[in-house]
């Protein structure tokens, strides 16, 4: 284990309260589309970043509450969403496109040029 991984581990231990957002992951020939539900996260509190082959999605919930409100019934407790994915080598982390609307994040992760399917012509000699 490298030092970097250990650091990442202690980070996770500190923040176990984060909720895993549900995702859909679909692959087609050009790449992968990842859709995640992050309700209550404003655009400026959302962070999507890649470190090498790992993709981290993180969001902080910011919901207006009236003064003096007391929670009486709670199904979602944590104000933080976090989820990490390992990308495979054939995906290009530098060309990820992201869109965020109504609490739904859509990521488009294209395949690296060399990994795009190619039809190889067989020539008859």
């Amino acid at each position: 284990m490298s030092e970097k991984q250990d650091v990442a581990k202690s980070d996770v231990a500190q923040q176990t309260q984060a909720v895993l957002p549900p995702v859909d992951i679909v692959e087609d020939e050009a790449g992968i589309r990842l859709t995640a539900d992050l309700p209550g996260v404003p655009k400026d509190q959302l962070s999507v970043r890649t470190e090498g082959q790992s993709l981290l999605i993180e969001g902080q919930v910011a919901i207006d509450t009236p003064e003096g409100m007391e929670p009486v019934y709670v199904e979602t407790r944590s104000p933080v969403y976090r989820r990490t994915f390992n990308l495979s080598r054939d995906l290009d982390p530098t060309k990820i496109e992201a869109a965020f609307r109504d609490g739904v994040l859509t990521l488009r992760i294209p395949k690296a040029e060399h990994a795009q399917p190619r039809k190889i012509a067989v020539s008859v000699v």
């Binding site: 539900d37 992050l38 309700p39 209550g40 919901i63 509450t65 009236p66 003064e67 003096g68 409100m69 007391e70 929670p71 009486v72 019934y73 709670v74 199904e75 979602t76 609307r101 109504d102 609490g103 739904v104």
Partner: peptide, 19 residues
């Protein structure tokens, strides 16, 4: 998912309905 809170003036229901 639903969270409910009350204050002296109102009852607030938050439903998490992304997309």
């Amino acid at each position: 998912r639903v969270n409910i809170g009350t204050s002296a003036k109102s009852v607030e229901v938050y439903a998490l309905l992304p997309g």
